[in-house]
Structures are given as C-alpha cells and as structure tokens.
Simulated assay, not measured.
Amino acid sequence: MDVIPAIDILDGRCVRLYQGDYQQSEVFGEDPVEVAQRWYSQGAKYLHVVDLDGAKEGKPQNLKVIEAIARSIPIRVQMGGGLRDRESILSVLNSGVSRVIVGTAAVENSQLIAEICAEFPEQIMIGIDARDGKVATRGWLETSEVMAVDLAKRMTSVGIAGIIYTDIYRDGTMQGPNIEALRQLAENVDVPVIASGGISSIADLLNLLSLESVGVKGAIVGKSIYTGAIQLPEAIRAVGNGRWQDVIDGSAIA
C-alpha cells in the first residue's frame, strides 16, 4: 500500500486545516518546495498536493508553486483544488503534475469528466470528500445531496483512474480513518481507492492495509507526519510502499 504525504497550500505556505475549516489552519512550512523535497528524501514515491486557495476560488491559485514542486523531484505528483474546467485541468497537467484530482466538477458537470477522461486517459482522479456520507463541494464549503457511493459508481463508468476518499469529519483530527465508509466505497467500485483523513498512527495504516484486498491501495498522511506522530520512513516500511499506480498504467517508479 502506498503512503502518500500531503502538501496543502494556502497563501503560498504549507498548512493543515482542521475538518476543512479555513479558519482553523496551522502553518507547517513557509516553502512547499522544501517540504516536498523533504518527503522525497524520506522515501515518498508519490505526493498529494492541494491548492486550498484554488478550491475556495474555483481556479488554481498556486500554480507556480505546484509546478516548482513537480519539477524539483523525480516522483509523481497528484494535485487537486479548483479544477472545475478543461482550461484549469490543462494548465495543471502542463505544469508537470502526473494526475489531477477533480471534485466539485464531478458533482456539477459529469459530462466534463467523461470528456477529459477520454482526452487524458489514466490521468484523471476523482476526489470524494464526504460529510455523513454526502459529497461536499467548493472547497468543502458546501454539502450536496449526492451520496459518496452513488457518485463513485457513476464516475467509474467514465474511465477515472482512481478515487481519493476523505471523511471531512476525520480530516486533521488525528482520530483515525473511517474504515467502514472506506470499505463500503471500495466494495462498490472497480478502481483503486486512496484513503484520506484522520490517519494518526502506524496502527491506523495497518488497519487500512486490511482493506487492500477490497481496493484501498493508498493512504494520504498529513498532520501526523508534520507533527511527528508518524515517521514517514517507518510508515513506508510498515505497510510496504506498493505500486497501486501500476494497476492503472502498467508503469513503475524506480
């Protein structure tokens, strides 16, 4: 199972939010590029980058920083935040990012998702961020009536490369992932699922590893690695940095 460090960018800095609340942010680094290089040096094979300003504004706002991250390290970077039209998605893919994560547009414009999946095969992932099972949109500032499992089923039919599932109530809380919600989601789709939100210990990662057989192939770690609750090299050794992306595109990262 892949252990994927998260880099959330707000006002050009690396931060962590509590339950997606922009008013409850904690700065963990002034230079996201330096943070990315740190996680790479500790064994990361993949990075998860979120443009929080972009998620709020509806357009990428930290593209230069994200491009600098992607160009500075020889590993794959997946990025989300404010990607709601073809132009924005193209701008991010052209920046060196390997895969883009689309959230709000999956709820509001499913035709766009179908079109970009056809145009950019294996490069489009869906971010499903849920409150009480319902999908949140627009930087988690709004909650739709769409159920997470229903959206996941609908999106797998258009050729997405995978799903990143976040339980908002667990995000930034260090209270552990929502194992049952992840199991339910993974059992209903046939694409890899990456878990996000609440992961606070090696034990949490081992619990997620038990879901690998149903399709949970990665875990995004955020606050826990910034506070030192989890040491990234130890986490990678504990669960084995798998190759869930190989299932998607048949390639490997040396």
Rank of each mutant, 00 (worst) to 15 (best):
M1L: 11
D2H: 09
A6D: 03
D11K: 14
D21R: 14
D21N: 09
Y22T: 12
E26C: 10
F28M: 10
E30A: 15
D31C: 13
V33C: 05
Q37P: 07
R38Q: 10
W39C: 06
S41F: 06
Q42D: 11
Y46M: 14
H48M: 08
G54Q: 11
A55T: 04
E57A: 10
K59M: 08
K64R: 14
K64M: 11
I66D: 08
I69S: 04
R71F: 10
P74A: 09
Q78N: 01
M79K: 05
G81L: 05
G81I: 06
R84I: 14
R86Y: 14
R86I: 13
S88A: 11
S98M: 00
V102C: 08
A106E: 02
A106W: 09
V107M: 02
V107S: 01
E108M: 12
N109K: 05
I116K: 07
I124D: 06
K134T: 08
R138M: 02
W140H: 04
S144Y: 07
M147G: 15
A148M: 10
D150I: 07
D150K: 04
A152Q: 03
A152K: 03
K153P: 00
R154Q: 14
G159W: 11
I163R: 05
I168Q: 03
R170D: 08
G176K: 08
N178L: 05
A181T: 05
A186F: 08
E187N: 13
V191E: 04
V193F: 06
A195V: 13
G198D: 07
A203F: 12
L205W: 14
L208K: 02
L209T: 05
K217F: 08
I220M: 00
I220E: 00
I220G: 00
V221L: 08
S224N: 02
S224F: 04
I225Y: 01
G228A: 08
I230A: 02
W244I: 15
Q245F: 09
D246G: 13
D246F: 15
D246H: 15
A254H: 11
